Computed example of a mutant assay.
Amino acid sequence: MRPTQVNGRPALVLRTGGEIVTVLAVRLEGGLITVLYAVRNPEKLSRIHRETAVDR
Rank of each mutant, 00 (worst) to 15 (best):
L32H: 10
N41R: 02
G18D: 02
E43G: 01
T34P: 00
S46H: 11
P42G: 05
A53Y: 13
E51P: 01
N41M: 00
E19M: 06
L36C: 09
Q5D: 10
R50H: 14
N7I: 13
V35F: 11
R50S: 11
V35C: 07
I48E: 10
G30S: 01
V21D: 05
T52E: 11
K44A: 14
N41L: 00
L45D: 04
V35P: 03
R56H: 14
P42W: 04
T52K: 07
H49E: 13
A11K: 03
V39R: 11
R9H: 07
V6C: 08
E19P: 02
G17N: 09
K44T: 11
D55L: 15
E51R: 14
G31E: 07
L28T: 05
V13M: 03
R40S: 09
V26A: 09
Q5G: 10
E29M: 12
R27V: 11
L28A: 02
A38M: 14
M1Y: 09
V6D: 03
D55S: 13
R50V: 13
V21M: 11
N41V: 02
E43W: 05
N7Q: 13
G31L: 08
T16S: 15
R15C: 12
A11P: 07
I33A: 14
R27A: 11
G17H: 08
V21H: 05
R50I: 06
V35R: 12
R9I: 01
V21L: 02
R2P: 00
I33E: 06
R47F: 13
E51Y: 10
